[in-house]
Amino acid sequence: MKELIDKIKLLDFGITGDELSSSAIIHEQTALKSCGFPQIPDEVLEFLKYYNGFLAEGRCIFGIDIKKHFLYDILGENVTAENPNPNDILLLGTTATTCIAWRASKQDYLLIDKSTFMVLHKFKDFKQAVKYILKIDD
């Protein structure tokens, strides 16, 4: 994770959310659970502690923003998306045409077409998914 964070630092651009607090994590995880969505994986939470969401060139990694749930917040984005499988798939980020997502049943990260929700690619791990969103060569 440190290597990825260092690479993102070099980008010198992008907007990130407020610093993440443990109460915000608990609030978000509880809300996700009550809606039937999968929980945010530990690897993602670790990233969110460095960058609580990241928005660059219209590409975005969702964060935890309990004040404005409907704007690039994990819960807000998942609630408003037309996800056909909300009990298994948790959306974690987006580009203009695709989403990155966590598939709880198989414990893997996917690249999904935003319009059809078709799986386009399986990432090795969350770091590779972040690199895709931020256009960092793998």
Binding site: T97, H121, K131, Y132, D138
Partner: peptide
């Protein structure tokens, strides 16, 4: 075609 290629 739209976003460019950023995936291995």
């Amino acid at each position: 075609d739209f976003e460019g290629l950023y995936i291995t």
